[in-house]
Design a protein around this nucleic acid. Structure first.
Lengths: 183, 183
DNA sequence: TTCTCGAAGTTGAAGCTTCAAGTTGCTAAG
DNA sequence: CTTAGCAACTTGAAGCTTCAACTTCGAGAA
């Protein structure tokens, strides 16, 4: 008999191993979820690239800045808010600086650096943001009932709680985590 | 008064524009969703890279092949199943070939090419797959109630239907779509 | 038959992300 | 006071993805 990574629901072959693979129902949910988080970002990136010339991550960064009272954030915090590593962020800020949408300000304290949205960046965001949000609405909210939206929030909230619990501080600061586990 | 991309729920300022931005509730759902589809793939990729040396997309490709009766698929179809562009897939298959986990077979008909999982690739998959699936279970299914899992399936199903409806055939075949819209 | 078009792949370059290895400036221990 | 250690970046290289251009093969029109 052929071994399969994802078995059908055949209780006979289940053993007492510590590892359970996914069952049928779970597997199909998983496929859907993978499809969503592959296609949705791709669609958003593509639309943004075409219509505004920026990536989704760049957009998120600028939105995060625009929501601050002084339109600026320290990179470390911005990284968390935008769900990216500090390295990634640093590169992105450099690109955005080249396009004059963001400016770096050396923070007064310590080694802190702040990113600040320029007027130009703000204008750009106000111009292109609504276009993007329309796309978001079209692809996500227009196809869901209010109850489904509620459910979506609940489910993503739970998953994120788990992820944030261990990933901690932007993407995958594995070394940091390992360091913090030392005796 | 400051313009904001995401306004609070102030009915007074709403005009009859065709574009509605997101309201408060929608915005918070959106932030959660973005966080999930940023962090979850990052976490999975990181775990796979560390423990098995392959990316999530490579893994998906190999799983898709392993699920075929003859462990092979034509690239065009594989691209759809794995939610990637043909170009991306071609590059990935080349990499997997270099590692001897996959082999290209020139199809008999037309310009078709098939990718086939080698025995080595199959073994690798059987070895490392369960490790990955355990991670999937830990990050997703273990934190959700059965009802939430059901809801997740429903919501992702709806979103995917919309995405697949227009993105059509792997990621973002924009040119293809444009071509098909000509008079 | 011959021509033309389109589908299926491949390829190289450009752009992003990740990873590892630096800087640099606080801060606390000795 | 000085020094070790860490937090907060920065940087360059390696690896992936996307994009555009190109190659082939097959099918249908003329």
């Amino acid at each position: 008999m052929k071994r399969q990574l994802i078995p059908g629901q055949d209780p006979g072959t289940q053993s007492a191993q510590p590892l359970r693979s996914l069952n049928h129902r779970e597997w199909s949910v998983w496929l859907q979820l993978v499809t969503t988080f592959t296609l949705l970002p791709a669609a958003l990136d593509s639309q943004l690239q075409r219509d505004t010339g920026m990536s989704h991550f760049e957009f998120e960064v600028m939105v995060a800045l625009s929501r601050q009272p002084d339109r600026s954030l320290q990179l470390k915090d911005l990284a968390v808010v935008a769900n990216g590593s500090l390295s990634r962020l640093s590169h992105v800020i450099s690109r955005l600086e080249r396009r004059t949408w963001v400016r770096r300000r050396s923070g007064t304290r310590g080694r802190a650096t702040h990113a600040e949205l320029t007027d130009e960046g703000y204008r750009k965001l106000m111009e292109t943001g609504p276009i993007h949000l329309r796309e978001v609405r079209r692809l996500v909210f227009d196809v869901l009932t209010p109850d489904e939206v509620k459910a979506l929030k609940q489910v993503t909230g739970r998953i994120n709680a788990g992820l944030l619990g261990e990933i901690n501080l932007g993407a995958l600061a594995r070394r940091t985590r390992e360091r913090s586990m030392r005796p």
